[in-house]
Design a protein around this nucleic acid. Structure first.
Length: 310
DNA sequence: AAGACGAAAGTGGTTGA
DNA sequence: TCAACAACTTTCGTCTT
């Protein structure tokens, strides 16, 4: 099957003709053999973060019926039934049967609220987690990873004094980086409607308390997503990674924000391959300014001796 | 008219005393 | 805890295509 190697190269043989020349169509989520045209693989979904375009639609569709539904069943379902009874009772006499029913419902609600705080917390948190993850188009494995981190945090009692949303957001941030699908703090802050600083604080706190070690984000991790958002071909993507690798070898990336470096590499690659994107377009998806892209790409182009002709 | 460029001042986060 | 510092942003006028 499809194997992801560290370089971002996908190695697979076409069962029909044995060729390794395969084309990945992210829009359709298919792997097609360039030699004989056979559709080698159709389900790219679980293969990794790269199929964002595909996962995008699917996640969107899913989340519409998924997260809000459970939301409805949990919160709304319960509270509306009780409201209903109250209204009804205020208008008319309550038969003893309904009284009994009302009593039972109250008891039920009480049980849910009081009996198992941890379960309750988890239910709310996981719902929240799915909502945020949907907004960020995160694949399932990242969501699960985030859930695992959250569960550990709950077990250690790290939630106390912190908002559930904040901790969830931080867990997602951690999970993203663990799975090499980094999102910036800004993106997560936007999706979770939390303060960026707050998430950062909680994030550091959880890392320390759970003893999690994260290797620092590399600009390479951002390339697939940015390229995909910009509708750039695989060729550009490979080129950008190539440039980045060389730049990293020359220590051009240390101390620099990874998103900026990544954006610059993509800019250079897009020009070289002839699928030019403007600095502004790239700056938007990368979340950095054009100025930063300019500074980075000047440095890289100079050191790598790449000529850029307009 | 849009994109690229770069100077200059401002901002937020890290570091070291 | 505070000031220095580098990276990055904002803003804006100019040049290029």
């Amino acid at each position: 099957m499809v194997n992801k190697i560290g370089t971002g190269e996908y190695v697979v043989k076409c069962p029909e003709c044995g060729s390794t020349d395969l084309y990945h169509d992210y829009e359709r989520a298919e792997v097609i053999c360039n030699q004989c045209g056979l559709v080698v693989d159709e389900d790219l979904m679980d293969e990794g973060p790269e199929w964002r375009a595909f996962d995008n639609e699917q996640a969107e569709k899913r989340s519409r019926t998924g997260a809000p539904m459970t939301y409805l069943i949990h919160d709304m379902g319960l509270s509306t039934t009780i409201d209903w009874r109250n209204k009804d009772s205020s208008g008319r006499d309550i038969p003893s049967q309904q009284r009994a029913q009302l009593y039972r419902m109250r008891k039920w609600q009480q049980r849910i609220r009081v009996s198992n705080a941890k379960e309750r917390n988890l239910t709310i948190a996981l719902t929240e987690l799915n909502k945020i993850a949907s907004k960020l188009d995160l694949p399932k494995n990242v969501r699960e990873s985030a859930a695992v981190v959250y569960r550990k945090a709950v077990d250690k009692g790290l939630i106390r004094g912190r908002s559930i949303e904040g901790v969830v957001a931080a867990c997602i941030y951690i999970a993203c980086r663990r799975c090499s699908v980094p999102r910036t703090l800004d993106e997560i802050a936007e999706a979770s409607m939390m303060d960026r600083k707050e998430i950062g604080r909680i994030y550091r706190f959880i890392l320390r308390e759970l003893g999690i070690n994260l290797s620092p984000t590399t600009p390479l991790d951002y390339i697939p997503r940015f390229c995909s958002s910009l509708g750039l071909s695989r060729e550009v993507q490979m080129k950008a990674m190539d440039i980045l690798n060389k730049a990293m070898n020359l220590q051009l990336t240390s101390g620099r924000g990874p998103t900026g470096v990544s954006a610059a590499a993509i800019y250079i690659a897009s020009v070289l391959v002839g699928e030019r994107r403007t600095q502004q377009e790239i700056s938007e998806v990368a979340g950095v300014t054009e100025v930063t892209i300019r500074n980075r790409y000047k440095e890289i182009a100079e050191k790598l001796e790449i000529e850029i002709t307009m």
